[in-house]
Amino acid sequence: MPSTKITNTVPVTVNAEACIADKGCSVCVDVCPLDVLLIDQAKGTAYMGYDECWYCLPCEKDCPTNAITVHIPYLLR
C-alpha cells in the first residue's frame, strides 16, 4: 500500500548538555519498559524514538544527571 509519514511530538526531552551517554551511560534506555528511548551515537545523547510512552518516569528518576524530562503526551494534556 502507498504510505506517508506524519510527524508526532514526543513527550520526552533530553538535555544534551547534561546527558553522559557518550561516557557509556544508557540507564534511561535500559529501564524504559516500552523501549522507546534510543542513543544517538553521533551526538552522544539519548532521545525518544517512538511516541509510545506510559509517562511512568523510571527514565527520569534513574538518570544520573537529571537530563531527562517527561511531559504528559500531547493527546492527554
Binding site: I20, K23, G24, C25, V27, P64
Partner: peptide, 11 residues
C-alpha cells in the same frame, strides 16, 4: 581520567 566514565562504571 574522565569522571563521566568513572561514574557510569560505578553505576
Amino acid at each position: 581520567p574522565d569522571a563521566g566514565i568513572r561514574r557510569v562504571a560505578v553505576m
